[in-house]
């Protein structure tokens, strides 16, 4: 039951996106997210939408996964669209009770929804094509220069790695605890919301206690294997920025120039 859960949403593959260095992907994601807000012209949106669709289509990830990633946002999108449709002053094209739907509202609502959709799509492209481990690695490298201002890059990455490592172990343990409590007559599935939350206590308490014990033993094991923080540490799997990463950066720069030109021209 609980053991079926997979961590992250990574789909292994060999597409261009899969082969990019995680650092390059993270940086390009940030740049593209900024672009969504900077180049807010129909031409700019057309370029970004085209790029997102092209990358999604070539990523080798089932397209239904992208729709699924948008699903939690469905209500927000619909709500945003309706508010803008009805609350923007302008040329009324439909009147219903107290609502005045305007043409201006229609286009504003549409572009706002497109903006949100693009943000989700671009982040999904990153998480679907990058394994959690290389993502962690990439973040550590990118944050490393910030160590001078006190950002604990290595420690954050180590925490992420250990968390990822222990998710399946703790899921298994939760499963065992639940079965143990159920065999003593605990009931997790009936009652109102408040009652169900109360039922979680006998699961959470043993789980927390055992997690602390695990943490203690893990710390000893790490010390026994000469762990002493990020100083002087090397890595077996070094990250390499290759031609494909420079090419991706080049293409992004070209798209930026094109979108900039279109914005100047008012398209």
């Amino acid at each position: 039951m609980l053991t079926d859960i997979t961590i992250g949403q990574f789909f292994p593959g060999t597409s261009i996106l899969h082969r990019l260095d995680p650092r390059a992907k993270l940086l390009l994601l940030l740049v593209l997210m900024a672009a969504i807000f900077v180049f807010d012209t129909p031409g700019g949106y057309a370029v970004l939408t085209g790029l997102a669709l092209l990358l999604a289509a070539t990523s080798g990830v089932p397209l239904s996964m992208y729709f699924r990633s948008l699903r939690p946002l469905w209500w927000i999108l619909a709500f945003t669209f309706l508010i803008h449709l009805c609350a923007t002053p302008g040329e009324v094209f439909f009147h219903f009770w107290i609502f005045d739907m305007t043409k201006e509202g229609l286009s504003r609502g549409f572009f706002l929804c497109l903006r949100l959709t693009l943000l989700i799509l671009f982040s999904s492209l990153l998480t679907f094509t990058t394994s959690p481990l290389s993502l962690t690695d990439g973040m550590e490298r990118l944050l490393r220069p910030l160590k001078v201002v006190g950002v604990p890059a290595h420690e954050l990455a180590m925490m992420m790695t250990i968390a990822l490592r222990f998710v399946p172990t703790l899921i298994e343990e939760t499963d065992t605890i639940m079965k143990a409590q159920q065999s003593r007559g605990a009931d997790f599935s009936t009652g109102n919301a408040l009652k169900r939350v109360r039922h979680l206590v006998p699961i959470l308490v043993p789980l927390f206690i055992s997690s602390f014990r695990r943490a203690d033993e893990l710390a000893t094991a790490m010390e026994a294997r000469c762990y002493r923080g990020g100083e002087g540490r090397t890595r077996m799997k070094e990250l390499h920025v290759g031609g494909i990463d420079y090419a991706a950066a080049g293409v992004t720069a070209l798209l930026f120039a094109a979108m900039g030109a279109m914005k100047m021209a008012g398209i």
């Binding site: 959690p132 481990l133 790695t161 250990i162 990822l164 490592r165 172990t169 014990r213 695990r214 033993e217 893990l218 000893t220 094991a221 790490m222 026994a224 294997r225």
Partner: peptide
């Protein structure tokens, strides 16, 4: 150590 789960660090 005794507990195999609590001494493996990487995923």
């Amino acid at each position: 150590f005794q507990n195999p789960d609590n001494q493996i660090i990487a995923a």
